[in-house]
Nucleic acid binder design. Structure first.
Lengths: 231, 231
DNA sequence: CGATTGAATCGTACGCCGTACGAGTCAGAG
DNA sequence: CTCTGACTCGTACGGCGTACGATTCAATCG
């Protein structure tokens, strides 16, 4: 049995350091590796979107044959999982010991989360359907720890975390998919105006035209936090 | 030019009423129609999930050739759009004139929304990426109207609506994709326990094992509404 | 040193997908 | 009877994910 690669453990990559560059002096491409594959997949996803990621195209960008990828990953789904988690790394800001400003920390992390996903819009549509990678779990852990230290009872903790998670997921997926061109938005508005008698209220408040996504995210988040932990 | 079908206008289906059953007395299958296609697509999606909907398979169920569908719909994406919106119809409960209980109405509509989507789990993953059909717009309009009558200022209305929308989207997509078997859940928990030193807090509160989705949804929604419109 | 091994690469091929195209069917109108 | 237009469908094409087996090559061992 060939065994292939087993799980998430990495045992590759102590080669470049030791080998004398091999016989082929100028083989331009560095060797394939999980890291390169994931990084290139992210590039490709950024450039072409979810539907643009094809194994053949990914291999082209890597300068390799399509089937070579399957030595490093089990299948295409795994590429999605790895690309998603790789984009969600979070380094908490440096802070002198235990900050008192738990609310600021939560807002900062969630806004960073949202920003990361909007930098890679494909990630928003992927997140809800995928396995929880280490970076995602790390964010949940941080959130949990912060809220817990802020005095939220364990009994309410899960509800609080899921509420915030829901909010972030919803806001980013919506934002990512409603990022229409101005033309599209105008068309949508026209359609809505034509149906004015059916949807008078959302037409009046210009729900579909409202462009201040960042502000709305922040305001809504504040409301939610108010509800979760009244000051 | 063949013109095909133009938009959403329906001009079909005044045939069954008038025709004398045709020559072929026992052509078992009723004729193709948008309604039948959408209804069958929903069945198929329920049975096989998003990836299980193939044009050929859909045609099989309808007893027609695969290409016949393309007379009624433009492409596969349109089938998704129509199936999604068809599943989100909402009939507001009968109520004597203007109810005072705006909060109850909102909660009822949103819980119904969530229930509808969980009855058809594929719909949750589709919703954020799709066009707004009439049923979805109808729900937004109802939400908007109710909150407005409850006294929410127009300036805050959009934020309130999007916050609730985000919450529902996030909760349903998460719930639909985390609906693991007990085995899966146990495996996830094991993995988490093995990494206990990395994620102690979410391990302690059993975040991934918490099974009370309905209760969490309701509680989180209450928190959010508290924040949006303090009683 | 040559033989062996196992990690890594890749060419070919298979089955399935969405759907373009154009030929067929058939009811009703002229 | 002919014509027309709504509707159906068989065939075919290009592209997809990936199974499979051959191939390459550096490291290892007798």
């Amino acid at each position: 049995m060939a065994a292939k690669r087993s799980g998430a453990q990495s045992k590759r990559s102590q080669r470049t350091a030791a080998s004398p560059r091999s016989v082929q002096e100028a083989s331009r491409e560095p060797p394939l590796s999980l890291e390169r594959i994931v990084a290139t997949a992210v590039e490709l996803l950024d450039a072409e979107g979810v539907d643009g990621l094809k194994m053949r195209r990914l291999a082209d960008r890597l300068g390799s044959g399509a089937m070579s990828l399957y030595w490093h990953v089990g299948n295409k789904e795994e590429v999605f999982d790895l690309a998603l988690d790789s984009v969600l790394e979070y380094r908490a800001p440096p802070q002198i010991v235990e900050s008192q400003d738990w609310r600021g920390e939560v807002v900062h992390m969630l806004e960073d989360w949202r920003a990361s996903m909007l930098r890679h819009p494909w990630s928003a549509s992927l997140l809800p359907r995928r396995a929880l990678g280490p970076n995602i779990l790390g964010r949940l852990e941080l959130l949990s720890k912060t809220l817990s230290r802020a005095g939220v009872a364990d009994a309410d903790l899960n509800v609080a975390i899921w509420s915030l998670w829901n909010y972030v997921i919803g806001a980013t997926t919506t934002r990512a998919s409603f990022d229409l061109s101005d033309d599209d938005r105008a068309a949508a508005q026209q359609r809505l105006t034509r149906l004015n008698e059916r949807y008078p209220t959302i037409e009046r408040t210009r729900l579909l035209l409202d462009n201040d996504w960042d502000g709305a995210f922040r305001k809504g988040l504040d409301f939610l936090l108010d509800g979760l932990a009244p000051r």
